[in-house]
């Protein structure tokens, strides 16, 4: 499924890299620990987190993640969105919790089997 469809279906606010929404999303990963994402997220995952720090962008770029969804209505730091724009990593915002968002993504067919 294309990232764009997820954005449209769930009404996510796209904060940066709006031209990079045509990539395929293979799965999703919930984590707020950078080291855990480095070790366990898969390429093409969309990363669900409430981390706002700019280091998330470097991790997403390194792992080839499809994008970052920041949850609980939280807003990332300016440095984070600037860096994400440079790296062309979409950052999206949701008012849902990680748990609720995972439910919605499953409903859209993004499974979590590893």
């Amino acid at each position: 499924m294309k990232l764009r469809r997820i954005v449209d279906e769930l009404g996510l606010e796209v904060r940066c890299a709006p031209r990079n929404l045509d990539q395929e999303v293979n799965g999703a990963y919930i984590s707020d620990l950078l080291s855990d994402v480095i070790a366990n997220a898969h390429q093409g995952d969309v990363w669900i987190t409430l981390q706002l720090h700019e280091n998330t962008v470097a991790v997403a770029a390194m792992k080839g993640l499809a994008g970052i969804i920041i949850i609980n209505g939280r807003v990332p730091e300016e440095k984070t969105t600037e860096r994400a724009a440079q790296e062309n990593i979409p950052i999206m915002l949701s008012n849902l919790s990680a748990f609720g968002l995972a439910g919605e993504l499953h409903r859209l067919g993004i499974g979590g089997k590893r």
Partner: peptide, 21 residues
């Protein structure tokens, strides 16, 4: 053995709700 994401999906399917923030 599931990830947080997969487990959340399973529990949502069962009707469990999230916490309000």
């Amino acid at each position: 053995k599931m990830t947080s994401y997969e487990a959340s999906g399973q529990l949502c399917r069962l009707g469990l709700s999230g916490c309000e923030h």
